[in-house]
Design a binder for these strands. Structure first.
Lengths: 156, 156
DNA sequence: CACATTTGCATCGCACACGATTTAATTTTG
DNA sequence: CAAAATTAAATCGTGTGCGATGCAAATGTG
């Protein structure tokens, strides 16, 4: 009933999450590279399709990424013409990011991707309810895991 | 009942997995860096604690990583004295990897980590059964997702 | 209002991931 | 057995993640 050896790879919860995360990124790849996108770039587009304009920090909050990751990523996206960066007039420190026509236009092409991938996953083995349940569980975990970053001594 | 906009970040299953994966890695970090380990290095140790000796490819199969990721990673671990690399005598192409005394000795120190992190996650909100269920689901997904790598047109 | 602190972004360094290519050793085939 | 094909690692280039640091603008404080 109890775990015999907590260090056995098969018994760890961390490894499946790590692997599935990479496998899903890999599944997105063929669809995204038609648009010249990487998976994190696609995530940035997702939030910008929902918001006309966001600062680098605001994008970072939504994706839980810091500027040290986002700054170069956004600059690469600017270089490929997906978005534009503008210093805020109110606060010169802030860089506001907004999509170009090209970035906006990719929305229609990207729209069917998640559904398509979900469909190819669904089968007798995997029901939609299971996917929804998984998502609910993970969302809850995100809340818990991102809550205690300062409690270094005992956090997960 | 149905998804209204499949491109909404909150409705995507991919993003929670991606985020939880990174959050878990972050949770491991303070424990692992006491030993000077990164998370992928810890994974390599996990499989080598279960097997006296493995080739680079065999480690890659278990962790689903290719040699272009593993070769430098393993070399870094060799440099820090965790393991040794030896060309196989039977097949000069194969590099056999085995732990040093130091690499073996880290097992006892690493043993309590997964349990400790699991414990800090468990609460009224998160029951052990939920964790087990999540793991079962993810394991099933790994099987499905890693099955059709050549079917590029329609895979997830 | 001067000065210390905070904030937003960028940069640097390091360690993955991973597609693509290279090199060397082994196996297959004619 | 020699040439072709396959295989195991390594290498290269690009793009993340992320801790640490730097810098300039904004804010707080006396």
């Amino acid at each position: 009933m109890k775990k015999q050896n907590p260090l056995k790879l098969e018994q760890q919860i961390c490894f499946p999450i790590y692997s599935v995360s990479r496998l899903i990124t890999k599944a997105y790849k063929p669809h995204l590279e038609k648009m010249g996108l990487t998976y994190p770039q696609y995530l940035v587009l997702l939030v910008l399709w929902e918001h006309i304009e966001l600062s680098v920090n605001q994008i970072g909050e939504k994706l839980m990424l810091n500027t040290n990751t986002l700054s170069p990523l956004i600059k690469r996206m600017e270089k490929t013409g997906l978005l534009q960066r503008n210093r805020s007039e109110k606060d010169e420190r802030t860089v506001m990011v907004s999509l170009t026509e090209k970035g906006l236009s990719y929305q229609s092409e990207a729209m069917p991707i998640p559904e398509k991938l979900l469909h190819s996953l669904l089968s007798e083995e995997v029901q939609l309810t299971e996917v929804m349940l998984l998502k609910d569980t993970l969302d809850k975990w995100i809340t818990i895991l991102s809550k205690k970053p300062e409690n270094q001594s005992n956090n997960l």
